[in-house]
């Protein structure tokens, strides 16, 4: 019971929590990250279903077996779908609005989320062909930060039929 004769009930108690963790990308993801360090996308093929994952977290999600074979992927891909982010929130480092797209790299069987630049936000389209723009060679690190963004590469849009299964 709050004592109403004093300052009233305590409604908030700030208890800052700070915990530090090590992060282990794992064997498969390390190979992907080492690829980024060299300015290339390394995927991995599932020995069971043959699908190429990028990045692989170590297993084929449908077969539950390790992905073992490295596959060098293209620098070019297709925007399967996208949204335009207009909402500001903590930790954001990109000026809004920005395009957040699912990019299906040529040769891969899964898309991943990428930033699209060098095009006004209202001109992005599903099916647009894009290429990765990397940081300068001296700045390459084993991180997705090595990819500055994707940009339209001028090719004709991919036909909906070619990517509709990757939405």
């Amino acid at each position: 019971m709050a004592d109403e004769t004093t300052a009233g009930p305590v409604t908030t108690l700030a208890t800052p929590i700070r915990l530090d963790f090590d992060f282990t990308p794992g064997v498969a993801q390390s190979r992907f990250l080492r690829g980024l360090e060299q300015g290339k996308f390394m995927g991995q093929r599932c020995p069971s279903c043959g699908k190429v994952y990028v990045p692989s977290r170590g297993s084929c999600p449908t077969d539950g077996v390790p992905t073992t074979e490295d596959v060098l992927l293209s620098n070019v891909g297709t925007v399967t779908t996208y949204c335009v982010v207009n909402v500001p929130f903590a930790g954001q480092s990109i000026e809004i609005p920005y395009i957040c797209a699912q990019v299906l790299l040529d040769g891969a069987n899964v898309s991943f989320m990428g930033l699209i630049q060098e095009i006004p936000a209202d001109q992005i389209r599903m099916g647009m062909r894009v290429e990765a723009v990397w940081v300068d060679e001296s700045e390459l690190t084993p991180s997705l930060a090595s990819v500055r963004y994707f940009r339209p590469n001028g090719e004709t849009d991919a036909d909906y039929e070619t990517y509709k299964e990757y939405l």
């Binding site: 090590d22 794992g26 993801q29 077996v65």
Partner: peptide, 12 residues
Amino acid sequence: KDDERNEVEGLM
């Protein structure tokens, strides 16, 4: 400490 494998790789 298993600092080579992630959770999925440790579990598989």
